[in-house]
């Protein structure tokens, strides 16, 4: 059985990237998340959730973005719960950069988006390279200001999309650079606190941007694991 020819080449590139997902994730699950998941099972939470995720978790994400970053998003229409931050990054890149002609400028941690760029067939460059439109700027909470500020200014000038991977702590957000409408915020929930294997993340954006992202996520995985969402919610409430 032959793989699709263009993809076969890309698969070789993907297989060259590090890791099979099994390493570096030994951590104790917080009791709050564990107990909330067991309680969810006892309530019969074993069915599909709403495709963008359970509303209390979307609300918790919106609240966290407001508290940590001063960003307002609509929990009902602007937040989508994903299967870990991996799916959030992939969905954003799939929907915001045109295949073939697009470029992703990774200002930090390019390894996090390298695989998604290969699947999307878009060019991945670092902050020292030149970029030609259409492009997307990817940055993280720890991207140095001297790197990010000129690129965010250029994104604003060129009308490029911005994907910001937020840490689970307070700090900078591209909205403060006037890019609230252009930015899709992505993140994992509890990945550093023992919940990485629960596969819960999110993406958040203005409603008009989030709609197509939600639709694509639904076509990919329908919804995120039910009991994982309840565990993630308990953890977020514990740390709110």
């Amino acid at each position: 059985m032959a793989l699709a020819v263009p993809l076969a080449a890309r698969v070789a590139l993907l297989q060259g990237l590090a890791g099979d997902g099994a390493a570096g994730a030994e951590a104790t699950v917080p009791a709050s998340a564990r107990d909330a998941s067991i309680a969810a099972l006892d309530r019969g939470e074993t069915h599909y959730t709403d495709r963008p995720g359970i509303l209390p978790l979307r609300q918790a994400v919106a609240d966290a973005l407001r508290t940590r970053h001063g960003v307002e998003v609509d929990a009902g229409k602007g937040v989508v719960i994903t299967c870990g931050v991996v799916e959030a990054r992939f969905v954003a890149i799939q929907q915001l950069v045109p295949a073939g002609s697009g470029t992703v400028v990774a200002l930090s941690h390019p390894e996090r988006v390298a695989a998604a760029c290969i699947v999307r067939d878009v060019r991945l460059v670092g902050p020292d390279a030149d970029a030609h439109g259409p492009a997307l700027v990817y940055l993280t909470s720890d991207t140095p200001a001297e790197t990010r500020d000129p690129w965010l200014a250029r994104a604003a000038d060129e009308g490029w999309a911005v994907v910001f991977e937020a840490a689970e702590e307070s700090g900078f957000h591209p909205a403060s650079a006037g890019l609230a409408d252009a930015t899709v915020t992505v993140g994992g929930i509890g990945a550093g606190q023992g919940l990485e294997a629960w596969r819960v993340g999110y993406l958040a954006a203005p409603a008009a941007t989030a709609g197509p992202l939600r639709d694509f996520k639904q076509s990919l995985t329908l919804c995120t694991t039910n009991l994982s969402q309840w565990g993630a919610l308990a953890l977020m409430e514990e740390h709110a």
């Binding site: 993907l14 799916e87 629960w198």
Partner: peptide
């Protein structure tokens, strides 16, 4: 084919939730 799809899955969603 499984190896190819696994490589794509690593880029799209990663592993399935382990409790599941």
């Amino acid at each position: 084919a499984i190896l190819g799809m696994t490589a794509i899955k690593g880029a799209t969603t990663g592993p399935v939730a382990n409790v599941s």
